[in-house]
Amino acid sequence: MLKRAGLRPTRQRVALGGLLFGDEHRHVTADELHLEAIDAGIPLSLATVYNTLSQFDEAGLIRKVCVNGGKAYYDTDAGDHHHFYIEAEDRIIDIPPGRISVDGLPKPPPGYVITKVDVVIRLERVGAKA
């Protein structure tokens, strides 16, 4: 998978790729993945985890989803889809395909093209606030 994406399969990339893609589709933060690596006996710095996730994102293997002014989740489903963000639980979940459409996008400024539209809908449990 790494070679097909144009990435050299380094020890760190293979180890983190195994954690990310080992089971099922998931959303994970760099901090969560770093703790998983440590728990699995994989000695990596947090900076290495961030750098590797950034490389995976740039190669199209994962998708970065930003919430709360910069906090990022990394989605192992790199395809076009949107998310719910459950604020009280600080987690994201996928919106099922075909359940949302975005119409009437503005024309980008000269010299630019729209490459992606991310929709994050924030959720709050009914009755959660007084």
Rank of each mutant, 00 (worst) to 15 (best):
G98V: 08
Y85G: 05
L123M: 09
A15N: 14
R99V: 08
K129G: 01
L16M: 11
G127Y: 06
E87L: 10
H34W: 10
T52H: 02
E87S: 12
E89C: 06
T10G: 10
A30G: 13
I38P: 01
K64T: 08
K107I: 07
G70L: 12
F56K: 04
K129V: 10
T115R: 04
V113W: 02
E87M: 14
L19N: 03
M1K: 11
L33Q: 05
G69I: 15
V49T: 08
M1P: 14
G70W: 03
A5D: 03
I62D: 01
K116H: 04
V126S: 06
L53C: 03
V49M: 01
L61P: 12
R122D: 00
D77M: 14
G79D: 04
Q55Y: 03
K3W: 02
L44R: 07
P43T: 02
G41F: 07
H82S: 01
I100E: 12
A37T: 09
I95T: 03
T10W: 02
Y73K: 12
I42E: 04
G127T: 00
T76V: 11
A128N: 02
A5W: 02
R122W: 07
L123P: 07
A59E: 02
R122F: 05
Q12D: 12
S45I: 11
A40D: 09
Y50Q: 09
R99H: 13
R99L: 13
I100H: 13
Y50P: 11
H82N: 03
G104W: 15
A59P: 09
E32Q: 13
E89G: 06
E87C: 11
Y50T: 03
L53N: 02
P9F: 03
H82G: 00
E87W: 03
G111L: 01
G69H: 15
A47C: 05
N51S: 11
S54C: 09
V67A: 02
V49A: 01
D39A: 13
H81N: 08
V113H: 00
A47N: 11
T48Q: 14
L7N: 04
R11A: 08
P108F: 12
Y50R: 14
K64I: 08
K107H: 09
P106C: 05
F56P: 13
H81D: 10
V119N: 02
A59S: 12
R63C: 08
L35M: 12
D103P: 10
I86Q: 04
V113A: 00
